[in-house]
């Protein structure tokens, strides 16, 4: 695996995800499915990461 590609893609991707939140309209958050999804996703990921 090319570690430089991974490092730069992770950095760029993470920053883009943060910026996106400031650019999308706030009403996107009103959808309960969206809220649920983004609340439960980290729980699932972190729990899986603890055991892996």
């Amino acid at each position: 695996m090319n570690l430089w590609v991974l490092v730069l893609a992770t950095a760029g991707g993470c920053y883009a995800l943060k910026v996106a939140g400031y650019l999308v309209p706030a009403r996107f958050l009103d959808a309960p499915q969206v809220r649920r999804l983004v609340e439960l996703l980290p729980i699932a990921l972190l729990a899986a990461l603890v055991v892996v």
Partner: peptide, 8 residues
């Protein structure tokens, strides 16, 4: 991706 939600 959770940071996107925080940003919003």
């Amino acid at each position: 991706a959770r940071n996107t939600l925080y940003a919003m």
